[in-house]
Nucleic acid binder design. Structure first.
Lengths: 188, 188
DNA sequence: ATCATTTGTATGTTATAACGCACAAGCCCC
DNA sequence: GGGGCTTGTGCGTTATAACATACAAATGAT
């Protein structure tokens, strides 16, 4: 994104036309003058954040619509096989298949984790706003979140805050396999 | 978010201090004047989008850091059991367990889908930028994306563009169970 | 203690955002 | 054809962003 003004101009014009609004009607809805809206759409002026907020709320879209471009590069079809990409990092009882590593456009990573019998791990708090989902495929797994252990069986899923201390524990004598997704609110 | 200026003020100050920078040093890095940075941090002025972009790129953070607040409400721990929430909407061969429905703060929904034997479905294109992940738990499933059918077995995952025509097909005589995640780039 | 440097704030000046208004062009109805 | 309304652009005025500079207070070194 070389010039945010160009993305903003194009997106405002498209949003307005998609909603079937003239500059006049949009000015009424947003409380921003018709002349200014035209200047923005033609890339002749860069609005203040306060003005952009008025536009976004008036049109019922989020501010980031105008700020962050939808990725130009289309999502490509990717097929991955956990068995061929599973890794066994230094840790003894944990294996990780990074199915879809973090990409800024999506804001999360999607992994398959395998917890061997008896394995336990306590994780320090991640950055503020991090959210994690753990969804059981096979086996059982205990998850520590908000100071409490939750026992998950096959077919169960948990969502918890990753920005606080949390943990994983396989209390059985069989492995546990899960899909896990970690979402980061802002990461460049 | 009642006033974007307050979030912007607090976030700029925190980011700057986290990076251990004075207003003077930040002015050097961003090309925005020290006096203006101070005005922004004290909430006395609302910068233009162009100025905010200079600040974000100079500090190496994304624009949305300053625009979209990290949700104030902390992520609560939620445990869900697919068997108790699985639904069988009108469609004959598809069952849906909405494990974690769409929330704007995260930008996606996370579901468990069950495709009964022989079931086939072609989906129209979703809105621009939609991305979908399908990850096999049990059985086999064919996925149509980019004009081509891909056969997925247990342990395989696929990521594809949901903003183009795509499809699902269970070619076997046993059910197929998957985790699926649908990510929407901007949705209010 | 003094001196030099850094830090954040205040102020006046300059540049530009944001506005109200006028107007040309297009469209529809009689 | 004329008249009325809508639409987007241009222009001059007003408000405020953005700046350069000055300054008081804090900090660090001698």
């Amino acid at each position: 994104m070389l010039d945010p003004k160009d993305h903003l101009a194009a997106t405002l014009k498209l949003t307005r036309q998609t909603q079937g609004l003239s500059l006049d009607k949009t000015a009424e809805k947003t409380g921003v003058s018709k002349a200014m809206l035209g200047q923005i759409e033609r890339g002749e002026s860069s609005p203040t954040v306060a003005t952009l907020w008025k536009i976004a709320t008036g049109l019922g879209v989020s501010l980031s619509t105008f700020i962050e471009p939808v990725p130009e590069t289309k999502t490509q079809t990717i097929v991955r096989t956990a068995d061929t990409i599973r890794q066994h990092p230094g840790d003894d009882g944990l294996m990780i298949a990074p199915l879809f590593p973090f990409e800024q456009a999506f804001g999360f990573e999607f992994l398959e984790l395998t917890f061997l019998p008896g394995y336990e791990r306590i994780s320090e708090a991640h950055e503020p706003g991090v959210m994690e989902i753990v969804s059981l495929i096979t086996g059982q797994l205990d998850i520590l979140s908000d100071g409490q252990w939750h026992n998950l069986k096959q077919g169960q899923s948990i969502r918890f805050a990753g920005d606080r201390t949390h943990g994983y524990r396989n209390p059985t004598d069989a492995k546990a396999v899960v899909h896990t997704l970690i979402h980061y609110p802002h990461r460049p």
